[in-house]
């Protein structure tokens, strides 16, 4: 009978495991399995030099200490980057006190230039390029587009996974300007390579 009891216990365990699995799977439906929370919120943004995309020389985020900074990672093959482009341009034109940095990533210079030629540039935007993935590593980038908000002390305070929209951008900046706390959000899927 000892054996019977063992089997009953085992069945109960298996049943419990099944229920757990069911709950876990149901909770996953519709979620993007690729999104990962960033541990970088609350840490200092990188001080590495970043090359300009369409001109000689480089910049560093430390140059902007004292100002709010928006760092946006994009590429010409990234579909959501097209969706958020207008919001970024408008934001850069409206929030003149905020520094905007557009990091072109995993792209070719020609494609990147024609992307901007087609969709428009803002003079207030600093277009830079991360040709060796050093900046992307420093920001823990997992896909495109991703946008980071940096406060006046150079601390990363929030991250947006997926395409930005203007209300989100403006709302976040307004809160930061008056010194409030902002939250990271996910607006949609990020893309990891052309086509996919």
């Amino acid at each position: 009978m000892k054996q019977r009891r063992g089997i009953t216990v085992m069945l109960a365990l298996v049943g419990a495991a099944l229920v757990v699995l069911l709950v876990v799977f149901v909770s996953r439906f519709g979620l993007d399995p690729s999104l990962v929370a960033s541990p970088l919120i609350g840490t200092n943004a990188t001080d590495q030099p970043i090359e300009f995309m369409e001109k000689e020389g480089s910049m560093s985020l430390t140059d902007y200490r004292g100002d709010l900074v928006v760092v946006n990672f994009w590429a010409s093959w990234c579909l959501s980057c097209r969706l958020e482009h207008d919001a970024l341009i408008r934001g850069a034109d409206v929030y003149t006190g905020v520094r905007f940095v557009g990091v072109n990533y995993q792209d070719t210079p020609e494609n990147a230039a024609s992307f901007l030629d087609t969709l428009g540039r803002s003079d207030a935007f600093n277009y830079v390029v991360d040709s060796e993935s050093r900046i992307a590593l420093d920001f823990g980038v997992l896909g495109l587009p991703e946008t980071f908000f940096i406060d006046r002390e150079g601390v990363i305070v929030a991250k947006v996974n997926g395409p930005l929209n203007y209300p989100l951008l403006a709302g976040t900046l307004d809160t930061m300007l008056v010194g409030g706390s902002v939250e990271s959000v996910t607006t949609g899927e990020v893309q990891q390579r052309p086509g996919g």
Binding site: S38, P39, L137
Partner: peptide, 9 residues
């Protein structure tokens, strides 16, 4: 260095 940026993930 990687864990600091991406977490234990």
């Amino acid at each position: 260095e990687f864990v600091a940026r991406y977490g234990e993930w």
